[in-house]
């Protein structure tokens, strides 16, 4: 996972570079929580551009990070989600909590 924090806009971008399952979710969770607690961002963005697989472990992981971000007064957004993963997100009803945007290029450099 690549992390980029932009202090001027208080934006934390977490680019996930692995498949998300129960095994990898734990590692992503630890790193994301560390970065959110450290920076207390206004907005946290999960960039899913390189994520080719996600199962239900990803749903729990995202809801957990949504709560963590909200604890520090921030919001959570997911960008560049592939169709097969979008289906799982839709089934979970996660759209009510987390904004999902498509085709965001270089958001991390904003």
């Amino acid at each position: 996972m690549n992390c980029i924090y932009t202090p001027s806009s208080k934006l934390l971008t977490l680019e996930i570079t692995e498949e998300i399952d129960h095994h990898t979710a734990e590692k992503i969770r630890r790193r994301a929580d560390y970065e959110i607690q450290r920076h207390m961002p206004r907005k946290t963005i999960f960039d899913f551009n390189s994520v080719t697989f996600m199962d239900s472990a990803g749903i729990g992981m995202i809801i957990g990070r949504y709560k963590m971000a909200a604890n520090f007064g921030g919001t959570l957004e997911i960008v560049n989600v592939k169709p097969s993963i979008k289906r799982i997100l839709e089934m979970s009803g996660i759209f009510k909590l987390v904004e999902i945007k498509e085709n965001i290029v270089n958001e991390k450099f904003v």
Partner: peptide, 14 residues
């Protein structure tokens, strides 16, 4: 407590 979503069987079924 393990951040499980409870969606496993639902996903398998659908």
């Amino acid at each position: 407590n393990l951040e499980r979503s409870g969606m496993g069987f639902t996903i398998m079924e659908s």
